[in-house]
Amino acid sequence: MDKAFLTVENLNKRYADDAPPVFEQVSFSIDKGEFVCIIGHSGCGKTTILNVLAGLEAPSGGVVIMDQREVKGPSLDRGVVFQSHALMPWFSVLGNVVFAVRSRWPDWSRAKAEEHARRFIEMVGLQGAEQKKPSELSGGMKQRVGIARAFSIEPKMLLMDEPFGALDALTRGVVQDELLKICSATHQTVFMITHDVDEAILLADKIFLMSNGPHARIAEVVLNTMPKTRTRESMHHDPQFYRIRNHLVDFLVHRSRRIQEAGAVDLVTRVVTPGLEESVPAQASDNFPQAALAS
């Protein structure tokens, strides 16, 4: 635990003093190079957690420690890909990425910054579109520019808030493949919010499942037991895919609410490996009588 790259301890957030906390007792850790997806229903505070990690929002309690330093305020160490891509429409594609690059390395010459930016634009497959304005791009291309911008500052960690939420299924698949390729090439540590179960299984090493808010918490950490070499095309032929998928869907449909209703305190986050249940310590599942019933 103490050698983890990012540690979150006992995070909670309430928006009003008399209101119940949106989430509480949120503790987890992420290792270097790990890809983590977080899934949960709307209102469980996923985006708030991401904003806290990004330093854009302050938690009501708890700490975030990254690389042995407490996270307080935004930093270039953490790149953020926003749900709405958040490109600046008055800059070209290149201008948007160069803006980030020059924020990271202010003393670089314009030429050097542009060269660096071009490399990342190429990486997301947008060579030739450098001079275009964001308004001339499709949704998928815009999101790729957002990814290029986040990667271009070479952050220690990448935070993504439903980056593909607004894309159609086909484009989404293409951009997912792109992201997977880049992440495995750069060993990027990623924390990503998604609503898409298949997306989580394809991309993530670990999937955090959040119970419903208020009083939301991370109820389970699902280890992705599929081989690292999984691809979007062949993934669904592996029986293991369905074991994980069913587990996730069951959680979202039934258990996320039951855990909230049970309202038990001091729950230990359960680590599960769907399909390989024999590897789970017996006592861990005992923490969740309701969960055990459902599965």
Partner: peptide, 23 residues
């Protein structure tokens, strides 16, 4: 969103004023 981008990129106030807010 644009201000958040500027924040996460730790853009200096002057650059933020001229390159983000002004345009």
């Amino acid at each position: 969103d644009w201000l958040n981008v500027a924040k996460t990129l730790e853009v200096t106030p002057l650059r933020k004023a001229f390159l983000v807010i002004l345009p």
